[in-house]
Each structure stands twice: as C-alpha cells, then as structure tokens.
Design a protein around this nucleic acid. Sequence first.
DNA 1: AACCAATCCAACCGCCAGATT
DNA 2: GAATCTGGCGGTTGGATTGGT
Length: 326
Amino acid sequence: MGRSPCCDKLGLKKGPWTQEEDQKLLAYIEEHGYGSWRSLPEKAGLHRCGKSCRLRWTNYLRPDIKRGKFNLQEEQTIIQLHALLGNRWSAIATHLPKRTDNEIKNYWNTHLKKRLVKMGIDPVTHKPKNETPLSSLGLTKNAAILSHMAQWESARLEAEARLARESKILHYQTKPSSHHHHGFTHKTLLTTWTSKTNQGNADHQQQQLESPTSTVSFSEMKEPSSAKIELVGSSTCLNLIKEPENDWFNSTVHEFEATEMAGGVDEGFTGLMLAGDSLGRSFSAEKNETVKERSGGGDCSNYYEDNKNYLDSIFSLVDPSTPMMF
DNA sequence: AACCAATCCAACCGCCAGATT
DNA sequence: GAATCTGGCGGTTGGATTGGT
C-alpha cells in the first residue's frame, strides 16, 4: 500500500489568493521552509491544498521572481530556446533567471506566438509557413545537427533542473529564514553544476563564467559558502557546456559551421522578428557580411541571410565567441 | 457612459515519473 | 512488485483589465 491520501479536497478553498493567505504562506516558509507541501497548508493555517500552495509560492510569492515586462534579451532567449526545446517551459525558464515557467508560457502564448504567426512563421517549427524545399542546400544535415543538439541540451537541462531542485530543497530546508532574496537562482545551480563538471579546472571555469554574454560576480553574500551569480542574458549555463571535454558538442558545432561555410543555411528565422527587422538583422553582423558576399544579393539571398542570422543567434547562446548584438 | 471585444495572467486541471509504503 | 502518493510540468480556463466604438 502507498501513503495516505495527499489531501482531503473537501472544504479546501480555491481561486485567487488573498493578502492574508499570502502572508500566512510567506511567514510559514520564512520560518520553517518548505519540506512537505502536503502538510504545509495545515501547519500554516491555510485552507488550501498543498498543490495550490506550491503553485502560489513558485509562481508568485518566491522572493527571487522578477515581474513586469520582458526585455528584448529575454524575448530573444525565449524564442531561441523555444526553437531548440519546444514547449519545455521549465527548461526554458532555467535560462531566464527570476522568470517562472508559467510567466514565460503566458508571454509566449499571448505575445511571441502571435507575433510569429503575424510574420508568417510557424510558431511550432519556427519555419516560414510557405517555405520551399531547400534540402539541396544541406538543410537536412543541419536540421539533424540542430535536432541532435536539442537532444543534448534537453538531457543537460534535465540534469540542471535536478541539481537546482536539490539545491533549493537543501537551501530552504537548512536555512529557511536566512535570506529574503535571491536565495536559489542559478547561483546554487551553477555552483553545483560547475563543481560536478569542472572539478580541478577552476581557472577554466572562471574563464567560462566571465564569458562576454554573461555577468558573473562573486561577492559578499549572506551565506558565506555561496557565490552571487547574476545572469545577464541567458547563456551562462549554455556556455558551461562548451568545455574542452565536451568533444561531441564541439565537434557538432564545428560540423555545423563547416556545413554552413559550404553554403548551407537552415530553416527558421524567428530571430528576425524581434523588435522589428533592424534588431534581428543586427545579430552577428560580422558573419553576415560574409554570407552577403557569397550569396550575391537579391531577394533570395536576403532570405538565406535572415535564416543565417537566426541560426547565428542560436549558436551565440551556445558559443560565447560568436558575437550577439542587441 | 455603456457596451463589447480583445488581451492578460493567476490559477486550476490532468497527466506523468519517481518516490514511498 | 503493486498500489498509491508527491511534486513537477504543460495545457487550459475564466475573471479582471484594457482598448475601441
């Protein structure tokens, strides 16, 4: 037999949370942390089910949540990661510190998806809806590579998420009231991840953390053992995967680049729709020049160029050496 | 001012994988 | 090993808000 039922649903309140309920939940977690959501509501004096409490906490009350409008960089990150990962909102959220998966999902459904559709881009495949077959240009191979990368990234994100969860639990279970802000963002996630993947390679790790697309600082924290890592942009975690030991990954990227140099471009150009064409076109301007020269201009070349911009922007997330301009 | 439609977003629902008994 | 619980995830809903007429 299993455990006793999670909660007696009879008589439990549903719907919007009141300020009083919020305060009760906050006060309880501040004082005791969250060990078991099942028993929490009763202990906290709430007539809600544990699931509702967890949702309220993770999506609204958590102190490390950033609210308000998404900036351009965040929009771009969402679109790029969605192209790679699909509707895996929690995975996408791991690259957007302080944003919840629910918020990202909502923003995608209400803003970004519509914008893509408006531009004639399929929000599921990130391809133009009237795209003509371009396999002769090596697209199939690139698509396979991207797909392969997405699989690799998915597996890595799962590991990351697991580590993050462990860190969160440890943090709140051991020091429930030791902080009021930024308790367990990518700080714990990254330190755990890097320590597991980069042991004995501190210099290199530091180098990676100081990549051009992320801002990482180790400064005074309330918890002496923790380093404060503030992510600007989304690439820090992705940067970590391009380590020397990630032979497959590097070879895949190189393979892709080689194919690209041979004239191949891949599908999708949602990067272009960000804040109008001008911003999209600014991605990887340096590389685009080369493409322009090769392609010889004209409407068709613009299409290829645009696609390349899109891919460049994705690979900029992966490869910090590739410039990404905003 | 009143009505309606569109949009936003917090919260719920149902499913799943892993944990627990 | 089966039954059941738990936490997490993605999809969906519906009330609130905003904008247009």
